[in-house]
Simulated scan of single mutants.
Amino acid sequence: MQRGLINDINQQEEQLSNIYLQAVTTVAGYSVYKPFVDDDSIDWGVAAKGGTGPIRAPRLELQLKSTSSDIQDANSIRYPLKLKNYDDLRMDDFAIPRILVVVLIPETPEDWLTQSETKLCIRGCGYWISLRGKRKTQNTSTVTVPIPRTNQFTVAALQSIMEGISQGVQP
C-alpha cells in the first residue's frame, strides 16, 4: 500500500495520539491549545471555561507520548520516559498541573482506524499519570514510569481531573 506524505512511522504515531487527545478533549467539552515551543515537556494544554469550584477556568498541561511497543502487563503500562521529561514533569511548583499521557496504538497503521457511514473508530487507548512530587532518580537517560491500567485517559477521567483542579486538587 502506498503511503501518503508522512513516511516516518513515529510521526504517524504522534499524529494519531494528537487526534486521540483532541477527540477525548472535544467530547469532554474542553478546548486544547498547543505551545509554540516544547522546551518544558509540555505538548498540549487543556482549558475549561468557568468552573464549579474556587478555581475559575481550570487548565491542565500534558506531555503526550505514543507507542506501538508491547509495554503493558496485567496491571500497568511501563513507559520508558526520557530523563528530561521525567524531571520536568515531577516538579510540584507549577501554576498549572501537568500529567503524562501515553497512547498505546496497534503496531500496523492499517489497524488504527475503521470507519463506516455510521461510525469512526480509532483503535488505541491512552493512559495518564501525574509525576508531581516524584523523587529525583539516579538514572542518566530514561526512567521507566509505571502507569496503572486503571488510569485510562477517557472523557470521564479528564472531566474528573478538570473538576478536581477547579476544586483546588492537583492530579
Rank of each mutant, 00 (worst) to 15 (best):
M1Y: 11
M1P: 08
Q2A: 10
R3E: 12
R3K: 14
R3H: 13
G4V: 05
L5S: 12
L5K: 14
I6A: 08
N7Q: 14
D8F: 03
N10R: 12
Q11T: 01
E13V: 01
E14A: 15
E14R: 09
L16P: 00
Q22T: 14
A23M: 10
T25Q: 05
T25V: 14
T25R: 01
V27C: 03
A28R: 03
G29P: 09
G29I: 10
Y30R: 02
Y30N: 02
Y30Q: 00
V32Y: 11
F36T: 03
F36R: 12
D38H: 09
D38L: 02
D39P: 01
D39W: 02
D39V: 15
D40K: 06
D40Q: 13
W44T: 00
G45H: 07
G45R: 11
A47P: 01
A47G: 05
A48F: 04
K49I: 13
G51D: 05
G53V: 13
P54I: 14
R56K: 14
R56F: 10
A57E: 13
P58W: 06
R59E: 15
R59Y: 07
E61W: 13
L64W: 03
T67R: 03
S68F: 06
D70W: 00
I71H: 03
N75P: 01
S76A: 15
S76R: 07
Y79P: 01
L81F: 07
L81V: 01
K82I: 06
K84N: 13
Y86E: 05
D88M: 09
A95I: 01
R98D: 07
I99K: 00
I99Q: 00
I99E: 00
V101N: 01
V102N: 05
V102R: 09
V103S: 03
V103T: 03
L104T: 02
L104C: 15
I105M: 05
P109G: 04
P109M: 05
P109R: 03
E110Y: 04
W112I: 08
W112E: 08
Q115R: 10
S116D: 14
E117T: 08
T118I: 13
K119T: 11
L120T: 07
R123M: 10
G126Y: 09
G126R: 01
Y127A: 00
Y127N: 00
W128F: 15
W128P: 00
S130F: 10
S130L: 11
L131I: 07
L131C: 08
L131D: 02
R132N: 02
G133P: 11
G133H: 11
R135D: 14
K136T: 14
K136W: 10
K136S: 12
K136I: 14
T137D: 04
Q138H: 09
N139H: 14
N139E: 15
T140Y: 07
S141A: 12
T142P: 08
T144H: 01
P146K: 08
I147C: 09
R149N: 09
R149W: 11
N151I: 11
T154F: 13
V155W: 09
A156L: 14
A157I: 10
A157D: 02
L158G: 02
S160R: 06
M162Q: 03
E163H: 07
G164M: 04
G168D: 08
G168W: 06
Q170S: 12
